[in-house]
Design a binder for these strands. Structure first.
Length: 498
RNA sequence: GGGUCGUUAGCUCAGCUGGUAGAGCACCGCACUUUUAAUGCGAUGGUCGACGGUUCGAAUCCGUCACGACCCA
């Protein structure tokens, strides 16, 4: 270790010396302390208890947590500890402790240390519920100081790289991850109540399928076999529906080898669910019900505020087709020009969208949609009738074979969900895979592989089924009012520091 | 990949057209038995992201790089 490092860590050195002194006295890391209660339980149980009531019938408690603040006033001190639920004030007076303990032990402890304390509840003269401590012990010495108490951590990089510090310091951040947990468990409960069965399907796949995206590639040594981290679980979940699990869902990680942004992390969490004997409209209804329920669960109402804008999940969601939505947001365009390839590609070019030779009408329409419509879909909206060309796993529409029985769901200008009636015609699916292979050979490395094993499964008969995927991270962003996907991922991917 | 901004004490931040590196919090010492961003007094703490250039002199100007944030693709 260099001199520079030693000098840089002056406060750490002081704390190490204190730890060394603890080691010499005996067990520096005792584990036997048991608390009887957490802070939030105390606040709710004694919310209405007056100062006098608490003094008249004393309540003994044992609490534990991290020292967050400390105010030493000679022979007595106040400090706040923080546990999993809340902060709690302790009143520690010299004369309430064993002889010498206050001066020789307690005063040498630092902010950040983890302690256990025992005493009786009381109210201070400002009315704050606190513990008058008569026994206290250091459980874990913190060798490094916490960030500044008032401003907390301002540097986003530290929040992401040292999430534990962010969680210690930021109530908002703890809240965000609490919302994430609530969202996931709400969804799980919602689906289980409707007879869906939770399953886990492979994350390492020999043929990556279920989405058009570039996969991560890895290698299995014993089998000497190339494997891909999955970009979606879709094809495995549908195999399960073939197997007779008629309602299945999975909430798990997908991996896509693409760029990072405020809405993209290479690994992200996806809900996918499949319901036999249902069509995409059934899933739109289900989605509407689920999101409305989520909004109410998280915020207590159906209107949520995201980045200063209000979105109402209470009223019926808007529904439009892709083409209708393009015309709606581009009043100068006509249905006629948008519905043949030459007209559509002219529109695309005026919008600055490069149109490749291989693009069909559907692909061009989707490019126009993404450029001119997607970010404007603020209120909860279903967009339907996606072109077959960009929907290789979705069933063709009976009235218009150029589009599929598919929808995507948008709110706040962002895609949250994608669902469709599944393509259960094995021969049509084989043709669609073949098209994808051609696109891959033409240089589109996001195009799908031909999955012959999946075709075999379809040949055994997939009942009419509707399926859907919902990006959990983006959903949590919405309900936690988080501007970046990194704010809802405990450990977002960061470049390694040299 | 492109653009803009940022990187100064453990943390939050100042530092003007180049001239000896600053504050608050934390830490250390003293005082203080109802404080809560405790208070009062005193002290310590810096390879100014890295490397190179311009200059008598660079935290400051220029270039390259690293890392990050935001926007665009």
């Amino acid at each position: 270790m260099s001199d520079i490092q030693i000098e840089e860590q002056e406060q750490v050195a002081q704390r190490r010396a204190k730890l060394q002194a603890l080691r010499e006295k005996g067990n520096a890391f005792p584990t036997g302390f048991r608390r009887t209660v957490i802070a939030a339980e105390l606040y709710s149980a004694y919310e209405g208890s007056s100062k006098e009531a608490l003094d008249d019938s004393p309540v003994r408690v044992k609490v534990a947590g991290r020292i967050m603040t400390r105010r030493i006033m000679g022979k007595a001190s106040f400090c706040h500890i923080q546990d999993m639920s809340d902060k709690l004030q302790l009143y520690v007076a010299r004369d309430n402790l064993d002889e010498g303990f206050y001066n020789e032990q307690f005063k040498s402890w630092d902010i950040g240390d983890i302690i256990g304390a025992e005493g009786v509840l009381f109210r201070t003269k400002t009315g704050e519920l606190s513990v008058r401590v008569d026994s206290i012990q250091l459980l874990t010495k913190a060798l490094r100081p916490l960030p500044e108490k008032f401003h907390g951590i301002a540097d986003q990089e530290i929040k992401y790289r040292q999430r534990y510090l962010d969680l210690i310091m930021s109530e908002d951040s703890r809240k965000t991850f609490s919302i994430r947990s609530q969202v996931v468990s709400y969804i799980r409960q919602f689906l289980i109540e409707r007879q869906f069965m939770e399953v886990e399907t492979p994350m390492m796949q020999s043929i990556p399928g279920g989405a058009t995206a570039r996969p991560f590639i890895t290698h299995h040594n014993a089998l000497d076999m190339e494997l891909f981290l999955r970009v979606a679980p879709e094809l495995y979940l549908k195999r399960l529906v073939v197997g007779g699990f008629e309602r299945v869902f999975e909430i798990n990680r997908n991996f896509r080898n693409e760029g990072l942004s405020s809405r993209h992390n290479p690994e992200f969490t996806m809900l996918e669910f499949y319901q036999a004997y249902a069509e995409y409209q059934d899933l739109m209804d289900l989605t509407e019900e689920m999101l409305r329920g989520l909004a109410e669960m998280v915020t207590g109402q159906t209107v949520i505020t995201y980045q200063g804008e209000d979105y109402d999940f209470g009223k019926p969601f808007d529904r439009m087709t892709v083409v209708e939505s393009i015309l709606h947001f581009n009043s100068a365009l006509t249905n006629e020009e948008l519905n043949h390839r030459l007209g559509a590609s002219k529109i695309a070019e005026t919008l600055g969208i490069p149109v490749k030779e291989s693009y069909g009408l559907g692909k061009i329409q989707i490019e126009i949609f993404e450029k001119t419509v997607e970010h404007k879909l603020m209120n909860p909206t279903f967009i339907t009738a996606y072109p077959v060309e960009v929907s290789p796993l979705a069933r063709r529409n009976d009235d218009n074979p150029e589009v599929t029985d598919r929808f995507e769901f948008f709110v706040g200008g962002r895609e949250i969900a994608n669902g469709f009636t599944e393509l259960n015609d094995a021969e049509d699916q084989a043709e669609r895979f073949q098209k994808q292979v051609e696109e891959k050979e033409a240089g589109d490395d996001e195009a799908m592989h031909f999955d012959a094993d999946y075709i075999t499964a379809l040949e055994h008969g997939l009942p009419p089924t509707a399926g859907q995927g919902i990006g959990i991270d983006r959903l949590v962003m919405l309900f936690a009012d988080a501007p970046s996907i990194r704010d809802v991922l405990l450990f977002p991917l960061m470049r390694t520091k040299s």
